[in-house]
């Protein structure tokens, strides 16, 4: 309900004026192997809009770390230690891991 009201107000307001505080979701992002090297770090806190999905998070990451773009097609993600194939909405405190092609054994 609150969201509905906020939207209506936004439509009626002048452009560029932000009403209230947009709800954000904080996700812990882990990067491994080639992804870690390309991004230059193994762990980041990502703040995304409420309702964002894992795919949105990956898009945000590749924007922030352009070097990751070269391996975007081969990236698989895990949310809270489970592989996911279709995008899933992220929640506050989730752990999202960027899994480049694995090579254990």
């Amino acid at each position: 309900m609150e969201m509905e009201v906020e939207k209506e107000q936004t439509e009626g307001a002048d452009e560029g004026v932000e009403l209230g505080v947009e709800k954000k979701v904080r996700v812990k992002v882990l990067l491994f192997a080639r992804a870690r090297e390309l991004a230059g770090g193994s762990e980041f806190d990502l703040s995304v809009a409420d309702g964002s999905t894992t795919a949105d998070c990956v898009a945000e990451l590749t924007t922030r770390f352009a070097a990751l773009e070269v391996m975007r097609e081969s990236i698989v993600v895990a949310l809270n230690f489970n592989y996911i194939t279709d995008p899933v909405e992220v929640k506050d405190g989730d752990e999202l891991a960027i899994i480049p092609p694995i090579s254990g054994g």
Binding site: F32, A33, P101, I102, S103, G105
Partner: peptide
């Protein structure tokens, strides 16, 4: 199964250059 889904990575370091390996088992499954 380990080679197809356990998140572990191997980098081979050569006298000139290095490469992160990719298991065929993982690539086929994804």
């Amino acid at each position: 199964e380990l080679k197809a889904r356990v998140p572990i990575w191997k980098k081979e370091v050569y006298s000139s250059g290095e490469v992160w390996k990719e298991n065929a088992e993982f690539l086929q499954r994804t």
